[in-house]
Design a protein around this nucleic acid. Structure first.
Lengths: 237, 237
DNA sequence: GATGAAACCAAAGCACGATTGGTTTCATCC
DNA sequence: GGATGAAACCAATCGTGCTTTGGTTTCATC
């Protein structure tokens, strides 16, 4: 810390070399579809370094959240899988889009309420950024992705582990099913503008730390979604 | 169907013999702690019957919900395990009683609403019976058990698989943790009478198919529980 | 003090055979 | 003809032993 050279970028000569090499492998994504990295032993051999150095580099990347590791399994790029996914996959088969919306309509207003009561200024800034991304998205697909991220962020900020798990469950089922096309049709330029305004309203309420308003704004938003989804289903049965 | 002899009780001579034998094994509970029954082949040998007959008997018992089977695993007494339990066990460690109540307060009023809109006369009769059992319970422990059964029944009648899973998740975490004593202290004779009245109000609203009233009655009930739990925690920190 | 090499531990995977429910076929017996 | 019993086969699961892989320690080297 007291040294005058920039510790973060240099560390020690070998450490930096290995770290950069591994970071490049991860970021460039030249790896199997499951995101698995070479084993530590292979990595060490390929880079002509010792296993300890490789492990130090991986420790760093893990701390940064770029990779995750599991003893006996391997090292993988990205975030560790959530056990909720499995449960979601199991029950996904007997859940229809309407009951999924029903569930969202139940839990998300409550999450917005809690979110409003617990959000920090930083949290609100993050939400605004996500809403902006949703608004700026070029195609309907990426808009949906950012929209999902926004709702998830609200759920996380709410700070209730149980409700977050329940939300994740609903979210996983919703994403994993074959309703994609249905929701796709329900998303037109007009509705998108509408959704953006509703997002604004929700975030404004959260920013004002007004839980009740946040909940009702979220409920209104979801009901709009719900209606459009229902119309979309009815129109082409 | 057109025969004059009582098909249900007699079927065919051998079938009935095997069915009774297996039914006795299950009901008397002379089986390992995991509820595993002998294999079909062993059962057939023991009873001096063919495997087909044994399977017919097991089919019947499975249809009655007395046993469940899994290829490659075995035949077991009781109901098949719910995958929700595992997930609940995993996240149980970082959930506190207050956030569990928060989650209940979010989901159970919505379940009561749906329940009121979908309950049949038979369903309401079942709920009334459970409320009666809760009221008649001798000790605080069994009252809690019947109370749990009542809330679960409402969740099941609501008829939304996703929300039922979410409810089960909360319920499992709630039951599995060490908060038993806390809730125990929160349950006094006075509060029990109070709870009984609230149960009545909820069920009356469901009986009247008034979802909004059912939801608010449930919310009121949970808020009472919540308050008492909070007091109980504060009193002896 | 950082590095590299080696050895060991523990968790997970993998391959293989055995077990078990699910299914079909066929001969037999009322 | 329908129920039964026997046999064979399929598919999912489990148990076992070996391998792989990350986690950890030790030691020699630079």
């Amino acid at each position: 810390m007291l040294k005058d050279r920039p510790k973060d970028t240099q560390e020690t000569p070998e450490a930096e070399r290995v770290l950069d090499a591994v970071r490049q492998i991860v970021s460039e994504g030249r790896l199997p579809s499951d995101g698995r990295l070479p084993t530590e032993r292979n990595l060490a051999a390929e880079l002509g370094a010792g296993r300890a150095s490789v492990r130090r580099a991986l420790d760093r990347l893990e701390a940064e959240g770029l990779i995750w590791r599991r003893q006996g399994k391997g090292t993988f790029a990205g975030q560790p899988p959530d056990p909720t996914e499995e449960l979601a996959a199991q029950i996904a088969s007997d859940v229809d889009p309407l009951s999924a919306m029903e569930a969202r309509l139940c839990i998300e207003p409550a999450l917005a309420d809690l979110c409003a009561r617990r959000a920090t200024g930083e949290d609100v800034a993050r939400l605004r950024k996500l809403a902006e991304r949703t608004h700026d998205a070029d195609d309907s697909d990426s808009a949906e992705l950012w929209d999902g991220a926004l709702h998830r962020a609200i759920a996380r900020i709410a700070g209730n582990r149980l409700m977050l798990t329940a939300f994740t469950l609903i979210d996983e089922v919703r994403m994993g099913e074959d309703w994609q096309e249905k929701r796709h049709r329900a998303r037109t330029p007009q509705t998108r503008a509408f959704y953006d305004a509703q997002h604004q309203k929700i975030i404004d309420a959260i920013d004002a730390r007004d839980g009740t308003s946040a909940a009702s704004a979220m409920r209104e938003h979801l009901e709009t979604l719900f209606d459009n989804l229902r119309k979309s289903i009815e129109s082409r049965t």
